[in-house]
């Protein structure tokens, strides 16, 4: 879950992604989560979660422990990361925009 207890998507940050975040002045929004691994936590609403799971049926929502959406295909995560970078945000509008673009 996010710091405020909501649904989230973890986008793990490797060196390449960290460089892109730095270039966009967003490096500070990535945080260390586990044993040196950095993550970008993208917030998600209940409605957006359902829409995402409908569009990508291999994805699963872990309702019991992490409250995160898991098993999202890698290329989808890449798209979500790019959208976050473009919008300079980790709020739910990232997923909204991403799904809207996929619909168009």
């Amino acid at each position: 879950m996010t710091k405020d207890g909501g649904i989230k998507i973890d986008v793990w940050v490797n060196e390449e992604r960290l460089e892109k975040l730095k270039a966009a002045g967003l490096a500070e929004i990535a945080r260390e989560k586990f044993a040196g691994m950095m993550v970008l936590e993208i917030a998600c609403t209940e409605e957006l979660k359902d829409a995402l799971l409908r569009k990508y049926p291999s994805a699963k929502y872990d309702s019991s422990t992490t409250h995160s959406i898991e098993l999202i295909p890698r290329e989808v995560k890449d798209g979500i990361f790019s959208t976050a970078l473009r919008l300079h945000s980790t709020g739910p509008e990232v997923i909204g925009q991403f799904l809207q673009e996929k619909k168009d």
Binding site: V11, N14, A35, G36, T66
Partner: peptide
């Protein structure tokens, strides 16, 4: 403590992001 949750490790591998050596 930071737990080695299976969900967390799977999430890292799904993204294809090379984990740190500590992971």
């Amino acid at each position: 403590s930071q737990n080695f949750s299976g969900t967390l490790i799977r999430s890292i591998l799904t993204d294809g992001v090379k984990p740190t050596k500590r992971v």
